[in-house]
Structure formats: structure tokens, C-alpha cells
Design a protein around this nucleic acid. Sequence first.
DNA 1: CTGAAAGCGCTTACAG
DNA 2: CTGAAAGCGCTTACAG
Lengths: 334, 334
Amino acid sequence: MKPITITDVAQHAKVSKSTVSQYLNKRYDYMGESTKLRIEDSINELGYQPNYVARSLKQKSTKTIGVIVANILHNFSTEVSRAIEDACHVDDFHLIVCNADDDPHKEKKYIDMLRAKQVDGIIIFPTGGNIDLYEKMLREEYPVVFVDRSVPGLPVSSIMLKNEKAASMAVQHFITRGYRRIAIMTTTLTRSVTPRIERIEGYKDTLTRYKLPVRDDYINSVPRSDIQMQLDRMLQLDDPPEAILAGNDLTLIEILKYTKQHDIKIPDEIAIIGIDDVSFASFYTPAITTISQPTFEMGKKAAELLLYKIRQQKAEDQHPDYRFEPTLIERDSV
Amino acid sequence: MKPITITDVAQHAKVSKSTVSQYLNKRYDYMGESTKLRIEDSINELGYQPNYVARSLKQKSTKTIGVIVANILHNFSTEVSRAIEDACHVDDFHLIVCNADDDPHKEKKYIDMLRAKQVDGIIIFPTGGNIDLYEKMLREEYPVVFVDRSVPGLPVSSIMLKNEKAASMAVQHFITRGYRRIAIMTTTLTRSVTPRIERIEGYKDTLTRYKLPVRDDYINSVPRSDIQMQLDRMLQLDDPPEAILAGNDLTLIEILKYTKQHDIKIPDEIAIIGIDDVSFASFYTPAITTISQPTFEMGKKAAELLLYKIRQQKAEDQHPDYRFEPTLIERDSV
DNA sequence: CTGAAAGCGCTTACAG
DNA sequence: CTGAAAGCGCTTACAG
């Protein structure tokens, strides 16, 4: 079945393609009322749908943006993506979401694919493994915004949590409740990743501020698959920690699996706070105290910033990173 | 900064655009070795990236498919989408995922948008509210595959769970463990939705088969926001149920919130099975017994079927629906 | 107020 | 073995 094109509509309405195009783009300024009506009728009668691909080619804009998340398994990624989608929707922009799976090769593949598809800009949760590619995009004045992690040296702002503050709030909460031996557990990646570094920094600073010792054997950064083992090691220390700060949702899940399996009571035997709110936090037993990120605002800001760059046709921005406030949600795991 | 086009490459390599295009499409059959090398060098030197939009316009194929899930909040949707993505990746097809949010208007909007963007086919988790639109697509021989829910009367197969069997397995498991007063709770929608209907059917049949009474006041289909209230009502019956089958993940979550809040012991005071595996099932206390769907296989089959239709340029298929096996994962909530 | 013509960046028969 | 030309379905100055 042959699709209806603008030519068919023009013939049917007995006007030129140009006039139909004017109509489609709502340039009614000089259009006769009867012409307008004839075109409208023809469109309905033929069931005409404009071909965006053709339009995009001519206009050099697809009204589509790409989002590449570092790892879709983090709840944070999904929530931010959804907020980005909502914000784009207002301006009639569409989204293509890709998952780099913490792999710079995949990230590069997706960047290339999205650019070949001519998306108007990309929001990246950077793996950190493609610095020269990010630089190249910038040289080509291609609109990019970073989320969750920053890329030092690039004049592109990143939308991030106040990570140090988040860790600090958690540690302070532990301290207030009387805990002194406080550990932190994060997942590790081969590349250095802003949130992890800053959260550990905030953790250390806060301990120091409260004159508590900073112990290396309480600071863990291991691959997700090794978390259970690492907990084993840490809890067998002579003076094991009484509290653990989970650096993100996946880490928290591994810790809960461990405590469940070894029948360790929370918070009596070990207190827990997780950064990132998880779906089951409120109805887990015990309900889990978390530090949540304002994912909705962060996604919105990322979208707005990217759309702004797209409109201004600029890639750089002089603004420092945008930092968002963490929120402590007190529940029963501390 | 002006992007590099095939014309630039042709000039730089001192050949025609046609030849460059042949090269790009790996039609090397009659191409001189030196020509090939010159083109390759020019591409690298200029950093040329083909424009897929232009290619798509000419080839009338975007190598992209759309996925419209009824409600992204169901874990099932996310997992199936990911499986579809993996399967498409093999054939170098890309994905645009949209969330209809159980709203037929949004579903229609997304179908129109995806077709305007000329995606080669769409996988739909149908809301059921756009039958005429589905029919129109079929008339236009547009490739479509349904997932999770079927649309009666349309010669388009749907990829579904053996829903009756899933409910039946759950009920049998309850019965084997000695439970007799078994209820079912599902979310309701204004439109009738295959899984819900079939699961209730399977539930009833199994009770009947075991000569247990089928009680209307044990069968609940209410909006998500009313689940808590409904549980209240049901548990205040003179002879309240001893076991509840949760029709999907969101229902299960509402039930767990309720039991937590009212301090109801699982499984001692109420036993629970959820259809759909949830992330926290294994480390919840108690670990939740679930019936899981083979989401990976289902997504794979959906993708394969759609890609097949796209290649054959056909929309109909005579095959009955594809049905997949549920799996009972015994844990501690029964 | 409307239409003819050029052009977006590719691909593809076809000619030589 | 390679190139000239037409065309995919739109939009956009420009002419009248």
C-alpha cells in the first residue's frame, strides 16, 4: 500500500505542494479561507500523515534528543529519564534512551548511532571512558549535557547531587543515633566516578569533623559481585562496623541480601542507610532509611539546559555544575 | 560548523558520490582497490559520518522499531523492552520506547508519532482502547505485534503468558500447603484486559476443580489506589481469606504495604503469592513466593516476529497467540 | 494569496 | 570499474 504524500494532498486539494506545506506549518498569514478548508478536507479524506524523516532532512532538526545512561539498573537512571521525557514533551521533543551498561565502547557506539540519526542533542551519564569523543562533540559545537557525573576540564556543566552533603547527612544521622563505627560501601568501576569519590570524601570529612577515626578497612569500593564477600571480611574484623552507608541502590540491595542470608538484625546488629531511594524502602522490614535525590528536578534541569543549548546552537556553557539537595528520609534501619 | 557530507568525501577522494555510496554499502564487487583505499582515507581524514535521516528517506526504512508499553511501572514492561532491544540489536535495529500510561489517548499519540517518524514496525502492549486504529494499521499492512494482551478479532498474534496456568499454579500451591480460603486481587482498568480476565478464570477453575467454593467477595479488581481499602474490607469478613494471590507486581507491592502497616504476619496470618517476579522477592522478609514470566524469551519472540513481518512486508499472521510457561518460585510467603 | 524551483544528503538503476 | 541523473518527501526563499 502506497503511503499518502504531500503531493497527493496537493493534487486532491488542487493547490501546490508549497501551499499544503504552509498549511501544515500553520503559516496561515496569507492563506485564503477556502484554500485552507480544501486542504483540511483533503488531509482528512486521504488520511495523510506528514513524513517526519523528510521534514527532518530539510530542516536539519529531528526534534529528538538522545539519553545515554551509564547503567539502567540504577533506579536513578530510570527516574531521571522519565523526568527528561516529561520536560521534553512540553516542547514536542522525543527521546531515544540508550543504556551504556558501564561500558565506554557501548557508550561510543550509542553516541555515534544517535548522531548518525541526527538527534539534536544528547544527555549523557558519562562512563568517563570517552573523553576525546566528548571533546570532539564540543569542538563540533554539538549540544551535550552531563548528568550524575562530571567530566573535569570540559566546559559542559553536569547535573549532580550534592554528593558530599548526602554522605555527610547519612554519617551525621548515624552519629546522632549513637553509632561510632561507621563503614561505607560503594560499587567500584575501573574509571573514577564523581559520585563515588565525592561520597567517600563527604564520609571521611564528616567523621573527621566529629573526631572519629577514618579507617581504611571501613571504606569499601568493590565490584557488585564482590560485595557479599567484602561484607564477610569486614564483619569479621575484631571491631566490626555497627553501621554501613550504602553508596547506591544496587549496593543496598546486595547488603540486604547478605543480612537476610546471614540473619543479621537491622538495626540492632547493623544499622543501614542507603543513598538513592528504592521502591521497597517503605515496606521492607525494617523500613530502610535513605537519602533520596530529587530525580525529577534533576531530569527537568538536564532537559531544559539541553533544549536551551539546542536553541542557541551552542555547546559550551560557563556555568559551574548544577548541584541538587539530598533529602534524608528517616525510617527504621538506623 | 558545517557537517561533512558524502559530497565532501567524494570531492576529497576524487570520485563520484555514487562510488562513495557503493563503498559505504559495502558493494565492493567492481571497485578498484585503489579507489577503495582513497575513499577509506578520505572518510577517516574528514571524520565523515553518514546521515541516517537522508538514507532512511531514500530507502524508506529507518531500521528503527517502536515499542509502546501499556504501563512502564510494571517490571514486566521494562524487562520485556530490554529483551526486545537485545534481539533487535543483532539485526542492527534501534528502539524507541514509549509509555502509554494505560491511557488510550497517549497510546494513539505515540502510534501516530512513531509512524510519522517512519519506524518500520511497532510492538504494542495494547491498552485496548484503540481498536479502530489497530485495524487501520492492519489495512495499511503496517507491521505490528502485540505483547501481554491480545486484541480479539485481529489477525495479529500476541506474545502472552499462559495466564490461566499461572493462576492455577498459584492456587494449587496454596491448596497443597493447606490453605482453603484463597482470594485474588488484581488492579482494574476501565477496559477489559486479557491477563486479568484469564488469571481470574484460572483461579476460579482451579478452585472448582478442587471442589472449593468460588466466592465473589474473594475476587477483587480495583484501581491501585483502592487496594488498601479493599484489603481492609476483605479481612474484616467473618471468614477472611487465609491466602491472597496478587495479580501483578504493583498489586503485590500494595499488599505488602498493607501487611507491613497493619503488622500482619506473612505467611502465618496471610499467605501470599505474586504473579511477576519483583526485585526484592528473594531478600524480603519473608522471601516472597512468586510466579515468574519468561520475560526474556517473550521479548525475544516479539522482536523476531516483528522483524519477520518487516522483512516479509506483511502485517497479518495466521498463527494463534504465542503462549509462554510461567514458573513457580517457592520462597517463604506461603 | 499561491506556485515553480531548488535543495536537504543520501541511493539506485542505468549507461558507458 | 565508475559517474550522471533522478528521486525519496518535505520546506523555503522568491516571484508574480
